[in-house]
Design a protein around this nucleic acid. Sequence first.
DNA 1: CGGCATCCAATGTGATACTG
DNA 2: CAGTATCACATTGGATGCCG
Lengths: 133, 133
Amino acid sequence: MATTMTAAQRREEAKQAYDAMLAACPSRQVLDRISDKWVSLLLVALADGPQRYSDLARRIAGVSQKMLTQTLRTLERDGLVVRTMTAAVPVRVDYELTDLGHGLRPLVAAVKVWSEANFEAIEAARQRYDARD
Amino acid sequence: MATTMTAAQRREEAKQAYDAMLAACPSRQVLDRISDKWVSLLLVALADGPQRYSDLARRIAGVSQKMLTQTLRTLERDGLVVRTMTAAVPVRVDYELTDLGHGLRPLVAAVKVWSEANFEAIEAARQRYDARD
DNA sequence: CGGCATCCAATGTGATACTG
DNA sequence: CAGTATCACATTGGATGCCG
């Protein structure tokens, strides 16, 4: 039986090692969280100040209602964004970066700047790679 | 017929708008690319210098062989990493950051530092959020 | 207007087995 | 050692309809 357990055991160990690393390495969780397609985009969009839900939906072309709401919820939960609801008809909801969110903003901005500066180099590298044998 | 087309039309327009934004906004593509769970981890792991494939697999606990290879391939294609194969028995393959990759490294490192510094604040925000009614 | 719930298709990811 | 190939499954994400 020992041999038949080996695979499962290794899997278990690997998973535990991963979980342990997750717990021991907080940056991993945060890194995973902001390594989200829409998070960075949203952070950039909110950099200009408070925005209405519909404004965000318009500014971030291609985002579905579901993803926009979902992403905003996680950002709110993580304390990076505050949601302000104004009771009126129709309802008005604004989203705004918190201090915590503002702290992350320059980092995302830096990545954005880097991306714009090095986009051509990456594009060239891709073409070189695809053209190779 | 005009009414039945509306939904499809809106979808088409949205997609075109998204594609246009992708083309017009290069940072979007790069942002999406580095907004990958394993890319940032790999960049951090490679910061110390060249690493063998098996070393990387060991250092980044929880990554599957498939994801490791796949991520390394895209990084190589994007010109952020170089792959060096040494013909021997057994074969030896090393991965190393390029100049381009090194340029991105401090940015990822900054995010990592921020994550470690603000992890507790985020954790606290989550608990506050989850405890709310 | 700003959502939420549901269903469904596409994609991502992992486990496993096999190869030079 | 450093992969590739395949299958199965989980997650993502979009479409749609309904609600306060």
